[in-house]
Design a protein around this nucleic acid. Structure first.
Lengths: 211, 211
DNA sequence: GGTTATGTACCGACTGGTTGGTACACATGA
DNA sequence: TCATGTGTACCAACCAGTCGGTACATAACC
């Protein structure tokens, strides 16, 4: 109903559809100000879209929130998670380490500002908006699942011992990364992130068979 | 300026001062709804205090925020952190493990609702309110310092090896705990917290000399 | 081909409700 | 009577969402 064939649909706006322009602005704003603290008017001003137009493309602010979540997730999967696990022949543990470095690099690039978009939304909305909570829980589950899969493969290959419980380790990896990002965001000190990633790597080595 | 001598000052309200009543209600509300999303009127209704009275005791909502932060910190230090490290003769690693269990227990009691008050505020305000950010950073530093101290003592006693860098390990402990609490809050599954605490303990054992 | 009709995309003023904060009257006790 | 508390009415700013209306393309009908 809303999607059109490329050029058609909404009028061009820097080559993007109106919907895309709104999404881009809102994603940026919500990343730093949070969902509730981002006023619709701010999004409108930033994207140059009128109010009526906004409500033509989105049912409500909540609707926009869900769309943003989808976009953040897609971008995370494509740009951060997937690239590290793309090679099916690659060694799982190395892939996980690659992923850790990539997350660290993201925080460095962003100058410790913004934290994790998913983590932020989780902290802000989990206890207050069941719909968002459920959606966020699914996202984290998918993320954890990707890591669990890698760890299972690592076990199959003997890269880690049988004492490694993939689900538990994956949960912990996600948790400690989220925590590290949060702590980095408060302290505004990238060294915190570096140290944490370093310790996560040491933790992972725990499961490698003794050489 | 604000503190009074026990019974004196404001009139009694269930044996508490007005200030205490406001603080208690606000702390509860902010814990689940966040700082910005907690309306002053909600705090007023919940505490049964009038608006004029509120502004007699607090300069602004921001002022209340700082007071709450102080209270949350005090309660955390006294009720969760300090008890585990009270015995100067106790073994540091055991004290840290005791603390981990205590945090887990707190989440269980709260039914995975609310998350960590400090973590929530950190996520919500770090990038948006420099004053709160600085204050929160100090709090986390103090928390980390307490753990660093225990780890240094552990090293002195030979409970952990020289490869254990107390500051880095303390940072990581705080981060992974915060992350675990957050993930538990999204999933509403205490098993996540249990698994994470379990993995943190395994991680700690990494530094114990081989038996 | 020209007129009428329809659906898509868009605009900005407005509304009803909420929010942090103020003004001020009143009470109480030393 | 004067400082300390407390309640109530009120305000300006803000915010999500609505509404009436415009612009324009394509389609339908004669």
């Amino acid at each position: 109903m809303t999607t059109k064939t490329a050029t058609a649909g909404s009028r061009a706006r820097d080559g993007r559809t109106t919907r895309e322009a709104i999404l881009a602005a809102a994603t940026r704003l919500i990343h730093v100000h949070g969902y509730n603290q981002t006023a619709l008017d701010d999004v409108l001003r930033e994207s140059g879209v009128g109010k009526g137009n906004f409500y033509y493309h989105f049912k409500s602010k909540e609707d926009l929130g869900y769309a943003i979540l989808d976009q953040v997730v897609a971008s995370f999967l494509e740009r951060t998670l997937a690239p590290c696990f793309s090679d099916p022949a690659g060694r799982p543990l190395a892939q996980i380490r690659c992923f850790l470095d990539r997350v660290l690099e993201t925080q460095r690039e962003r100058n410790c500002v913004g934290g994790c978009p998913l983590g932020n939304l989780a902290a802000e909305l989990s206890d207050v908006h069941e719909g968002f909570r459920t959606r966020l829980a699914q996202v984290f589950a998918a993320w954890r699942e990707r890591l669990t899969e890698a760890l299972r493969e690592a076990r199959r290959r003997g890269e880690v011992g049988d004492d490694c419980r993939p689900e538990a380790v994956a949960d912990f990896l996600v948790a400690s990364l989220e925590g590290a990002i949060l702590l980095t965001k408060v302290t505004k000190d990238i060294a915190v992130m570096e140290q944490c990633v370093g310790e996560i790597k040491r933790y992972l080595s725990l499961y490698e068979p003794r050489t």
